[in-house]
Amino acid sequence: MAQAWRCSGLRWSVDGPELVWDGGRRSVPARGKRVAFGVADGGVRTCVGARGHACPRRAVVPGRSTGARCEECGRLDRAHSVAADTIADDPRPYHVYLAWFGPGMVKVGITAEERGSARLLEQGAVCFSWLGLGPLMAARRTEELLRAALQVPDRIPYAQKRAVRSRLPASEAERAAEIEALHARAVGLAQWPESLARKPCEVVDHAGVFGLDGLPGAGGAVSELVAGGGVRGELLAAAGPDLHLAAGREVVVLDTRLMPGWEIVPGVGEDGCTFPVREFGEAAGISVQDGLF
């Protein structure tokens, strides 16, 4: 029987993406490399627990869940989450940023200064600029201000991000234009909190880091992992949690957040994908191994 591994997700740093496995093993999903893995017959997906603690019930969780946590562990994880707005006394300084994912898709967000640009890489931001830096609550107020005054959301669905990655503007200047325009409007707002220092517009472009130049369009995205299924193909790009794979005759997107909770085994056979794939459609904006990796 093939050795099984448990994946805790894709992590980004300034050095690039890494898949992290139980026991501390890491593998680098490098462009041009083969990705080949599957789920053994009879396997089930179990809750990954929360905040370093195993799920006491080892509850079975849905294959389509990107959180891989049962309801109880999900509540525990959110109880200490800046993103869920449950922490008000964090003393660390926070950046406010504008992130661009494609034409007409700009969001505002915050991230701890010590994290640098990791949060932007994790979200798959094609380019971004800092807006300000200051205490958490001032950063929160600024985020709300921009949402109301500039009609900029704080979330963009991943389906929309994936839909446009293969047809972005070719030049960095074109990709930066919307952020530059919104940045100028944002720093000029009169309600800007005094404790938040304005930051100059300096757009950072991640298209090269992600491998988006010349990226072919994908036909769809893996909707869930299933027992007995697998995927094998060449890695074309990695953006946020997504791996774009040339799997046989089609290009598919694999959201690595679907992997935790499963026992993953090495893939065998020819290139292709036998996991369920949800085709891209008009609603999404599209008119479409070394060890385990």
Rank of each mutant, 00 (worst) to 15 (best):
R141F: 02
V96R: 07
I110G: 07
D242V: 04
E72Q: 13
P200L: 15
G9C: 03
A177Y: 13
A125W: 06
R141W: 14
D22F: 13
G217D: 01
E122G: 04
G49N: 00
F37K: 03
D77C: 02
A221Y: 09
V48D: 08
A50H: 07
C7Y: 13
H244V: 13
G281I: 01
D90V: 01
I87D: 06
F293H: 13
E71L: 07
P17R: 09
R58L: 01
P17M: 06
I179H: 14
G23N: 00
V209S: 06
F101T: 00
G134N: 08
G124N: 09
E202T: 09
R34N: 14
H183T: 00
Q3G: 15
A50F: 01
G233I: 02
H183Y: 12
V277R: 06
C273E: 04
G124V: 02
A59E: 07
P135Y: 10
I110W: 09
P56N: 14
L212E: 01
A221V: 07
V187A: 11
Q160P: 02
P17K: 10
A50L: 00
G134T: 03
L182A: 10
R278W: 03
I179K: 14
A247D: 01
G291T: 14
V60A: 14
H53V: 14
H53T: 10
Q289Y: 11
V164I: 11
A88Q: 12
R69I: 02
T86M: 15
E113K: 13
P169T: 00
D90E: 03
E18H: 05
A239M: 14
G132I: 00
G267T: 00
G124M: 05
P135D: 04
A138W: 09
V226H: 10
L150E: 06
R64Y: 15
V251A: 11
A190S: 15
V126C: 05
A36D: 05
V152T: 12
R92H: 08
R69F: 12
G52L: 01
C7L: 06
G228R: 13
D89L: 08
V277S: 04
G233K: 01
D255Y: 08
S287M: 10
E263D: 15
R185V: 06
G102F: 06
P200N: 15
P216F: 01
S195G: 09
L235W: 09
V226I: 11
R257Y: 09
A112D: 12
G52S: 03
P241K: 03
V14H: 14
